[in-house]
Design a binder for these strands. Structure first.
Ligand SMILES: [Mn+2]
Ligand SMILES: [Mn+2]
Ligand SMILES: [Zn+2]
Ligand SMILES: [Zn+2]
Lengths: 149, 149
DNA sequence: ATTGCAAATGATAATCTTTCTCATTAATAC
DNA sequence: GTATTAATGAGAAAGATTATCATTTGCAAT
């Protein structure tokens, strides 16, 4: 019966601004998401959310990420591996791409205006307007070249 | 009891070269794949294979695309929509990318050496060797600008 | 051509992620 | 505080893929 107390997160505010009903669960999930700077999948979000408020079900996490994505609050990512992953669609964080370490699975973000522009141009020259770019590269850490091999 | 007769496809030969046992089913699936120039999913491959030889199960199609992918014969693609899609990893067809028409779902292939090089460079400058590029863009057909609106 | 054996197949169960159902609960407006 | 309506929880269902296991088959050695 005791409700956990935590401040309204930026995402919770966004939720309100869009006229979405701000339930306890959504407030919790929004808090967890605002607090994350990685790319959790639904199971991981569920774990983090339960830690803040155990009165939450995984069904609601699924529902909420879908809702947030439909409302432009979240971005869904697919890094392979079968489950969707999510991150905040942050205005000032900006569009970015992902490099996945082939050995560790670690996700490294990067931006590149040249790449932005090139993709725009390619698509335009094919007679289309760019709607979405789905891009991730897998790489393997280079062995540092040594003076004496 | 009657076996369908069709010539060995390039992929069937590849299969033999790699020392993979060339079963009737694999010959059929290889034939169907060699005959395709699109990006079928497993269900679609199954449909095409059954047309050539009904003595084939979808389990074997799943097994075979996995085997072929592990052996560099096939490439798996993910265009969203829940099912993996496949195309021949053709040496002379070359690496290419995919533009998906947002309205029709049609897949349009393109190559772009500048893009190849840029991605290589970006990844290298982050200290990695490029292993795989997963890239597809979604676009919407531009309305042709008209002299009189 | 026959035989022997390991590997592949077919049918179906199991798994995994995500969505749906429906009875119950809770958020917002009055 | 009450009413209304939407959201939630628990579990069933769906959809894609993989695993299981008895049976069949490719292929190499006779
Ligand atoms: Mn995927
Ligand atoms: Mn997918
Ligand atoms: Zn990111
Ligand atoms: Zn292609």
């Amino acid at each position: 019966m005791k409700e956990p107390t935590f401040p309204d997160s930026p995402l919770a505010d966004l939720c309100r601004e869009r006229g979405l009903k701000l339930t306890g669960q959504r407030r919790t999930i929004a808090f967890v998401l605002s607090d994350s700077d990685d790319h959790p999948d639904v199971e991981e979000l569920y774990r983090r959310a339960v830690e803040v408020d155990p009165r939450i079900s995984i069904a609601t996490v699924y529902r909420t990420v879908r809702l947030f994505e439909e409302n432009g609050i979240l971005q869904r990512r697919d890094f392979g591996g079968g489950r969707a992953r999510y991150e905040v669609a942050d205005g000032d964080h900006g569009d970015h791409y992902h490099l996945i370490d082939a050995d560790s699975g670690k996700v490294i973000e990067f931006e590149n205006p040249k790449l932005d522009a090139l993709l725009e141009n390619i698509v335009r020259e094919m007679g289309y307007d760019l709607v979405t770019t789905r891009l991730s590269v897998v790489g393997r850490k280079k062995a540092k070249p040594r003076g004496n091999g």
